[in-house]
Design a binder for these strands. Structure first.
Length: 732
DNA sequence: CGATACGACATTTTT
DNA sequence: TGTCGTATCG
């Protein structure tokens, strides 16, 4: 037997060797998914079913792609240069660079990141004269992203849009796309959208790729969205050798458009599909698996699957109940320090629902001098100093990139303010040329006469580097640029302390370009930009030595640790308030809990606080997820000074909100003054709203800070209102 | 143009 | 309660 087929269980072996036709591998947590994927890929290659360039493996993160490539390369002893293991986005970016001309794009198009997109969207909303508070760039982009995810283009949305908000969104969408095109830029969603469009509508391109890829594999299939699904379909007409691997219980990106139906309905989508379930878990103890299964069983939307393990029973879970977020942090840290050898710190992780929860833990860790690392928050490439520098590179590589132009034309200060910029923008619109071209032609425009002296050095600078791009490697260009712009002294003079970190970041960035240039001698600036725009911090995550790790549960997917702390297990926080009302969202929260708990090999500790300050209010009922863990699997440690809630009484907190929320109010004077108001906000009451005026309460949902009302306002109709934001007065 | 003040807002975020 | 973004003033 080939070494590729050794050490595999029955199901794994079947998954590796079933190469023809559609295959769905349901891979439970810790069931050796990556091993199956890599072996399968290597198996296809060594048995000569396909040449390396005929296989495509898609993942969601660069990190996962890199790991897979490394492992396959190890199995085969090199020979993987031609292998296409990449993320959805980088696969599409590469394809589009080759085929850009078919979409009337240039092949050196820029990829806009989230911030670039936001700037552009904001400008579009402004330009259209829409109210910026009513049409928030963030919300509009969310909608545009959803539409692109459904393969609905701007034109087709415009024809189907109706009503005040939709027609305006359609206008924003259309203008946004128009501007992107003018900038020779695509956003993240465009990469997928345009690729699918090409494959579906350009016969030649479609045929070529369908013919090329004999085998396609997809990791984390439960997190694919509709466009990604269509992309696979568009690649698959002929051979239909597709193997998707996933676990519907770990689908946690529904809010981003991931469509759990893709995996649940795979058999219907791909008739004749073979289903292989990997149910043997190699990671966690039996107790952990039992707890995880018991909780996830409360979900309706899942395929039945039972994880088994040969590992021993293991320790029971621990439940830590304390009074506040601060005490939660100190108890948890104390426990970690008491029980783990210092070298175990890297095998311990603290997982929370929201990034904001990291703060008290950070404070404790700093106070006690415990080494730690936090993931999340602003990523390296989102830092202002890096983005500014990258904007220069982007503009140098793509002179049509107006968003980058706007960002740096006055950085460092050149005396080119908003007024000048607005004039440039107007001229660019009228002449139908990029901003930079307006600046280049500045002397032709009387409006800019006064600014000639200020624009000229900038234009010269960009022009100089644009010429250099052809002859110089990325790292030299970047170094020269940093020097010429005098960025480092500038940063240090602003604020020596903060400036120092910024300078270090700039230096780290330069270091990155040096490494890149060394590894990719032939690469052009565009290639480098393309790579970094599709790169995230998580990709550079390495197990640092002896450091405690903190991150959100979302970020933890795919990782594993000996000991896992799941903190903040309170109704309203986990599950989040807004998920409680919606069964679909609630199930996703539960899957998130499942993901969290199954990261652990040996020990799980969950914790909750009796009271937690959030926007100045207290509220805390133990999470239902805690009560879904069978009693016999968990040890409880109650450090609360008040035993207001019976732990078992939290089983259905949503059904008895009022009585539960009353308890703390009675006990803590002054902290819950809103309670009396809540009491009065009942259906039938007449209230007055600062902007909407008088209205009648129709329905009341939730309690405390999440109290939501439906109010009928005269002339304005029914509005949904959060009581904590609206300053309502009861007047009748 | 830059600094300060006030008000609005408040999940998660593979690319 | 903290952060961020806009508005306004000097």
């Amino acid at each position: 037997m080939s070494h590729l087929l050794k050490d595999l269980n029955q199901a794994q072996l079947k998954a590796v060797t079933t190469t023809e036709g559609p295959v769905l591998v349901i891979a439970g947590a810790g069931s050796g998914k990556t091993r199956v994927l890599t072996r399968r890929l290597a198996h296809i290659l060594t048995t000569r079913l396909a040449e390396p360039h005929q296989v495509l493996a898609v993942t969601f993160t660069n990190k996962a792609a890199g790991e897979m490539k490394d492992r396959v390369s190890q199995l085969l002893g090199g020979q993987t240069a031609q292998l296409q293991v990449s993320t959805f986005h980088s696969f599409c970016a590469r394809l589009l660079r080759r085929e850009a001309h078919r979409l009337s794009y240039k092949s050196d198009f820029t990829i806009f990141d989230a911030e670039d997109s936001r700037t552009l969207a904001k400008n579009c909303i402004k330009e259209l004269g829409f109210s910026e508070s009513q049409f928030l760039p963030k919300g509009q982009l969310r909608k545009i992203s959803d539409l692109k995810g459904q393969l609905t283009g701007a034109e087709s949305f415009t024809t189907q849009a109706s009503g005040y908000f939709e027609t305006r969104t359609a206008a924003i969408y259309s203008l946004y796309q128009k501007r992107l095109r003018e900038c020779n830029a695509m956003d993240f969603d465009d990469l997928l959208f345009n690729t699918v469009w090409l494959l579906q509508n350009d016969q030649e391109v479609g045929d070529r790729y369908r013919w090329q890829f004999k085998y396609v594999m997809v990791d984390e299939y439960q997190d694919t969205n509709h466009v990604q699904y269509l992309l696979l379909k568009a690649l698959l007409d002929e051979h239909r050798n597709i193997c998707v691997v996933g676990d519907e219980d770990q689908s946690i990106y529904g809010w981003r458009g991931a469509d759990i139906r893709n995996i649940l309905e795979f058999e219907r989508d791909f008739p004749g599909a073979k289903i292989i379930k990997l149910e043997q878990n190699y990671r966690s103890t039996a107790v952990i698996l039992k707890a995880a299964s018991a909780v996830i069983q409360n979900n309706e939307m899942r395929k039945d699957k039972t994880l088994r393990t040969d590992t021993g029973e293991g320790d029971k879970l621990e439940l830590l109940m304390v009074d506040s977020a601060e005490e939660e942090a100190s108890h948890v840290i104390e426990q970690i320090m008491a029980r783990s050898d210092p070298h175990d710190l890297k095998e311990t992780v603290i997982l929370y629902r929201t990034n904001a929860q990291s703060r008290p833990f950070e404070e404790q860790l700093r106070r006690r001098n415990v080494p730690y690392q936090i993931f999340g928050g602003i990523s390296f490439y989102e830092r202002k100093e890096i983005k500014d520098l990258v904007a220069y590179l982007k503009l140098i590589a793509n002179p049509a990139d107006d968003v980058s132009f706007e960002r740096i034309v006055n950085y460092p200060k050149r005396g080119i303010g908003t007024k000048t910029l607005a004039q440039i923008a107007t001229l660019a619109r009228v002449k139908n040329i990029p901003y930079l071209q307006v600046a280049v032609n500045a002397k032709e425009y009387p409006e800019l006469a006064g600014k000639l002296k200020r624009l000229e050095p900038f234009v010269t600078l960009i022009g100089k580097y644009s010429d250099l791009v052809r002859s110089q490697p990325v790292d030299l260009i970047t170094q020269d640029l940093v020097e010429e712009l005098e960025i480092i002294p500038e940063l240090l003079s602003e604020d020596p302390i903060i400036g120092q970190t910024k300078v270090e970041n700039i230096e780290a960035f330069i270091e990155g370009t040096v490494e890149y240039a060394r590894a990719n001698a032939e690469a052009h600036l565009t290639d480098y930009l393309s790579e970094i725009s599709l790169f995230t911090d998580l990709d550079s995550y390495r197990d640092m030595n002896d450091k405690l790790t903190l991150m959100t549960m979302h970020s933890a997917k795919g990782l594993e640790y000996d000991t896992v702390y799941l903190v903040g297990l309170e109704e309203g926080l986990f599950p989040l308030q807004r998920a409680i009302a919606d069964p679909m969202e609630l199930e996703e929260e539960r899957r998130l809990f499942y993901v969290g708990i199954t990261r652990a090999r040996e020990k799980v500790c969950v914790s909750l606080a009796r009271a937690r300050f959030r926007f100045g209010e207290v509220e805390a009922v133990p999470s239902r997820f805690v009560s879904e863990i069978p009693e016999e699997l968990i040890n409880k440690h109650d450090f609360r000074t008040h035993h207001l809630y019976d732990y078992s009484a939290s089983a259905q907190p949503s059904r008895t909100p009022a009585s539960v929320s009353k308890a703390p109010a009675a006990d803590r004077e002054g902290t819950y003054y809103e309670y009396e108001e809540d009491e009065m906000l009942q259906p039938g009451r007449i209230v007055s709203h600062p902007t909407f005026g008088r209205g009648k309460i129709i329905t009341v949902e939730g309690f405390g800070e999440s109290l939501r009302l439906q109010i009928m306002f005269s002339g304005l109709g029914l509005k949904k209102i959060m009581a904590k934001y609206a300053k309502l007065k009861v007047i009748g």
